[in-house]
Computed example of a mutant assay.
Amino acid sequence: MEMLIVVAIIAILIAIAIPTFASSLNKARIATDEANIRAGYADVMVNVLLDDNYDAENGNASTAGQTKYYLQKDGSVATTDTNAYKTQGKNDSATTEIAGQKVGAWAKDKKVTYQYDNTKNQAVISFE
């Protein structure tokens, strides 16, 4: 009888711990996504600034400003999505701030894209 009670208590503790563990795992995946998105944003801004046609005084980036960039698995960005990074976690928060801008919620396995906005002088982050 004592053994049955011990097994029941352990089962209850496991039932409580599993959702907590799953939630913590998703939070870690979201943190990884945020760090990767931030690194990709920095790479886009470097590409815009290194653009030969970039006019720093007027904030015009004729070539880079019209290019859609995809976050790659290595943290860099490219104009093709052949080796694109896909988000690892599901973020339900619409108020997440990354690189100084609010980023909407995202689902798991979405590609991260960047489009430079000349008027705001920042890359707009989106998911597809």
Rank of each mutant, 00 (worst) to 15 (best):
D43C: 05
E57N: 08
F127G: 04
P19M: 12
K27R: 11
I30H: 03
T20P: 00
S62P: 00
T32K: 09
F21W: 15
Q88M: 12
L25F: 09
T82A: 14
Y85M: 03
D43Y: 07
Y69M: 11
S23L: 07
A78I: 06
A17E: 04
F21L: 15
A42T: 10
T79V: 14
I9T: 14
S76R: 12
S23H: 01
E57P: 02
T82V: 11
N26Y: 08
N58H: 03
G59K: 08
F127S: 07
N36A: 02
N91D: 10
D109R: 11
E57L: 10
I30E: 07
S24T: 04
R29K: 15
K120M: 13
E97M: 08
A61W: 00
N118M: 12
I37M: 03
D52A: 15
G89E: 12
K68C: 04
D43A: 15
M45K: 11
F21C: 04
N118E: 15
Y41Q: 01
I12S: 14
N53W: 01
G100D: 09
A15Y: 07
N47L: 10
T67A: 14
T96A: 10
E57G: 04
S23I: 00
A31C: 02
D81I: 01
G100F: 06
E57C: 02
A28N: 13
G65C: 08
A22R: 15
A56R: 07
I18W: 01
S126Y: 03
A11Q: 08
N83K: 13
I14G: 00
A11C: 13
I10G: 11
Q72C: 09
A64I: 00
R29L: 13
R38N: 08
N58L: 05
V112Y: 03
A17H: 06
T80Q: 11
T67L: 12
D81E: 13
Y116E: 05
L49D: 09
A84I: 06
Q101D: 08
I9P: 07
Y41E: 01
I18Q: 02
K86H: 09
V103W: 01
G104L: 08
S93G: 04
Q115F: 02
D52P: 09
I37L: 04
S24E: 11
A84L: 09
Y116F: 15
T79H: 08
D117Y: 00
V6L: 14
V77T: 11
L4A: 15
N118D: 15
T96Y: 02
V77M: 09
N47F: 04
I12E: 05
R29N: 15
T119D: 14
A17M: 13
I30F: 05
V6I: 15
K111I: 11
D52V: 06
